[in-house]
Design a protein around this nucleic acid. Structure first.
Length: 588
DNA sequence: CTAGGGTTAG
C-alpha cells in the first residue's frame, strides 16, 4: 500500500518534470533522449508528454518530421493530439497537401477529429490554395458542431479569402456568432488583396460604426487596399488615423504607409514617412523604399539608398537585390545592374529565377541580346516563361528575327499560349515585311486558341472608381469620352502624330487598326480624367498590363496640349507624363 | 487527453 502510493507520486512527478523539460529541448538529440525515456519508462501509452514531444519534433527547426512520423507509427492507439501534432508538422513541411491524407485517415479509422485538427488542415488548404478541400472541411466543421468556435471561424474565413473564394469568406464572417478584431482583420486583408479592395475600406468604416477599435493589423490591411487601388485620399485619411492612434510606432505599419504612398505615385511622401520614422527601420523598410524608387524610375536614388542601407549595417536579402536590379532595369543602368548581380554572392544571396529575369530584361532592353540569351542558358535552375518573354520583348525592340524564333519556340515548348508572345513575333516579321510569316503566326494562333489577358484601366474621381476596357462604352459619360478622344486625335495629328499600328495584328486596314488603338483602356481613362476633373489637376490612371507604345506616345502629347500631369501606374512601373515628356524617358 | 489553434508589411 505504502509502496504503491510512493510509486504513484513519483510517477506523477516524473511526468510533470518531463512536461516542463519538453519546451527546453534545444536539439534533435534532446528530443530523441526524451522520446527514448518515454518509450522505456512505460509512460508512452498514455502520456500527454508523448504528444507534446511529438508536436515539438514535428515542427521545430531542429526536429524531424519523418522521425515524428516514425514515432507516431509506434503508438498502438494514437490520440487526436498525436494526429494533430503530425498534421501541424505536415502543414509547415514542403508538402502541406499530405495533411489531407492524414485527415482522411483519421476519419476512416474513426479517430475523433477536433477543432484543432480542422484548424491545421485548413491551414494546409491555404498554403496549397485548395478550394475544394476547404469547402469539404467547412461541411465537416458544420457537421461536428464547431462553428461556434470563433477562432476556427476566423481560420475558415481566412482560408476562403486566401483560396480566392471571397463570397464564402464573407458568408462565414456574417454567420459567425462571435467576431473579434482578428475576424475583421482577416476579412479586410482578404478583400484588400483580392479583387475587392474598396469593400475592404467599407468594412473598415463599418468597424467604426459598430464601435470596434482598429488595431495595427487592421490599418495595414486597409493601407494595402489603398495601395492596390491607388486610392491616395483614403490612404491619407488612414495615415491621419494612424498618427492619432499612435500606431506608427509599429515598423510594419510604417512600411505599409511607405508602400501605400509609393503605389499611389507619391514617392516623395513615401520618402517622408521613411525619413521621419519614430521606430527602428527594418530590412523590409529599406526594401520597400528602394522598390518605391525603382518603380518610379529613379535608379540613382534607389542605388544611393542601397548604399546607405549597407552603411547602416543592414544585410541585403533576395528582395533587396530584386529591388536594385529592377531599379537599374527601369533606369537603364546596365553596368550597375550587371555589377550588382555579380556581387550578390558576397552577401550570401543566391540569385533566383526573378533575379535572372531582371537581368535578362536589363541586358535585352540594352540590346545585348546574345548576352541575355547566354545568361538564360547558363542558369542552374529551369528558366520560367517570364525569361523567354523578356527576351522576346527585347527582340521586338531590336527586330531580331532569329532570336525571337528561338524564344517563341521555347515558350511553345513550355506550353505557353499567351497571345502577346505570338503578337511580338508577328510584329518582328512585320517589321521586316515578311508577310507570309505574319500569316503563319496568325494561323498558329487560331489553331492554338491563344489566351488574351484583357487590358483594363482605372481612373478615380471623387471617391468612386471607373473601370475601362478596350472600346468600353459602359461608362455613363461614354459619349463625351469618345468625342474627347476624337478631339485629342485631331489635335495631336496637327503636332505630327502618326499612329503606331504595328502592335495591332488583325488583318484589317490601317484606318481600322488606328481605330482599335484609339480606344485602348488607358486612353479612355485619360479622356475621362480630362472631362471629369478640374483643369490643372493631375490625372492618375492604373493599368493592369504594361502601357502600350501608342498610348505612351499619345499621352505624352496630351500632357502638353492640355497642360496636365498624367500619372500612369502600369504593371511594373510608373509613367509620369508632363509637358510632352515621360519620366521613363521612353526607356521601358 | 487542463492546453494548443485565428488576423500582419517588401
Amino acid at each position: 500500500m505504502v509502496r504503491e502510493t510512493y510509486t504513484y507520486t513519483s510517477k506523477m512527478n516524473g511526468m510533470a518534470n518531463l512536461e516542463s523539460i519538453i519546451p527546453k529541448c534545444a536539439s534533435f538529440s534532446h528530443i530523441k533522449q526524451l522520446q527514448a525515456y518515454i518509450f522505456t519508462s512505460g509512460t508512452f501509452k498514455f502520456s500527454r508528454a508523448r504528444s507534446k514531444l511529438l508536436d515539438l519534433c514535428a515542427i521545430a527547426s531542429f526536429g524531424s518530421l519523418s522521425f515524428a512520423i516514425s514515432v507516431f507509427r509506434q503508438i498502438p492507439s494514437p490520440f487526436t493530439n498525436d494526429f494533430n501534432a503530425i498534421i501541424r508538422g505536415l502543414v509547415q513541411s514542403p508538402q502541406p497537401s499530405t495533411a489531407f491524407a492524414w485527415y482522411r485517415s483519421m476519419q476512416r479509422g474513426s479517430f475523433r477529429v477536433d477543432a484543432l485538427t480542422c484548424s491545421f488542415t485548413l491551414k494546409a488548404c491555404a498554403r496549397v490554395l485548395a478550394a475544394t478541400e476547404s469547402l469539404q472541411l467547412h461541411a465537416n466543421i458544420i457537421r461536428f458542431g464547431f462553428m461556434a468556435d470563433s477562432l476556427l471561424g476566423t481560420t475558415l474565413l481566412d482560408v476562403y479569402a486566401k483560396v480566392g473564394n471571397l463570397s464564402y469568406a464573407r458568408l462565414v464572417f456574417d454567420e459567425m456568432q462571435l467576431r473579434d478584431i482578428a475576424s475583421w482583420n482577416s476579412l479586410i486583408f482578404g478583400l484588400a488583396q483580392g479583387s475587392q479592395a474598396s469593400e475592404a475600406l467599407d468594412l473598415f468604416k463599418r468597424m467604426e460604426v459598430e464601435g470596434l477599435k482598429p488595431n495595427e493589423v487592421t490599418v495595414m490591411g486597409v493601407l494595402s487596399a489603398c495601395s492596390n487601388m491607388g486610392d491616395f485620399k483614403e490612404g491619407e485619411k488612414i495615415h491621419g488615423f494612424i498618427r492619432n492612434q499612435k500606431l506608427d510606432i509599429n515598423v510594419q505599419v510604417c512600411n505599409a504607409l511607405i508602400d501605400m504612398y509609393a503605389n499611389c505615385g507619391f514617392v516623395d511622401k513615401a520618402y517622408g514617412v521613411f525619413d521621419n520614422m519614430g521606430c527602428r527601420k527594418c530590412l523590409v523598410t529599406w526594401n520597400t523604399m528602394i522598390m518605391a524608387f525603382a518603380r518610379d524610375g529613379d535608379g540613382h536614388k534607389a542605388l544611393k539608398l542601397f548604399e546607405q542601407m549597407e552603411k547602416a549595417g543592414v544585410q541585403p536579402d533576395a528582395v533587396t537585390y530584386l529591388a536594385v536590379l529592377s531599379a537599374c532595369n527601369h533606369a537603364g543602368l546596365v553596368e550597375d545592374g550587371v555589377r550588382l548581380f555579380n556581387t550578390m554572392g558576397k552577401h550570401e544571396v543566391k540569385p533566383n529565377v526573378k533575379h535572372y529575369g531582371s537581368l535578362v530584361d536589363l541586358l535585352g532592353r540594352a540590346g545585348r541580346l546574345k548576352e541575355a540569351y547566354n545568361l538564360i542558358n547558363s542558369m542552374s535552375m529551369v528558366p520560367d516563361v517570364v525569361l523567354w518573354q523578356s527576351l522576346l520583348g527585347a527582340c521586338r525592340i531590336y527586330k531580331d528575327v532569329e532570336m525571337a524564333e528561338i524564344a517563341l519556340r521555347k515558350l511553345v515548348e513550355m506550353g505557353s499560349n499567351n497571345c502577346g508572345d505570338f503578337v511580338l513575333l508577328s510584329n518582328i516579321y512585320a517589321a521586316h515585311a515578311r508577310w507570309n510569316d505574319v500569316g503563319r503566326v496568325r494561323d498558329a494562333m487560331k489553331n492554338r486558341e491563344v489566351k488574351k489577358v484583357p487590358g483594363f484601366s482605372y481612373m478615380e474621381v471623387d471617391g468612386s472608381r471607373h473601370k475601362f476596357f478596350t472600346g468600353d462604352k459602359s461608362n455613363a459619360r461614354w459619349k463625351e469620352i469618345y468625342s474627347k478622344l476624337d478631339e485629342i486625335r485631331f489635335k495631336i495629328k496637327e503636332l505630327g502624330y502618326v499612329a503606331e499600328t504595328s502592335c495591332v495584328l488583325h488583318d484589317i486596314g490601317e484606318e481600322e487598326k488606328e481605330n482599335q488603338l484609339c480606344y485602348h483602356s488607358e486612353k479612355l481613362a485619360v479622356a475621362f480624367g480630362l472631362i471629369s476633373t478640374s483643369e490643372g489637376t493631375p490625372i492618375h490612371v492604373i493599368k493592369n498590363l504594361r502601357i502600350c507604345g501608342d498610348c505612351h506616345a499619345v499621352i505624352k502629347l496630351v500632357s502638353k496640349i492640355y497642360e496636365r500631369q498624367i500619372i500612369v501606374r502600369d504593371r511594373v512601373r510608373f509613367h509620369k507624363f508632363k509637358d510632352g515628356f515621360c519620366s521613363c524617358r521612353d526607356y521601358w
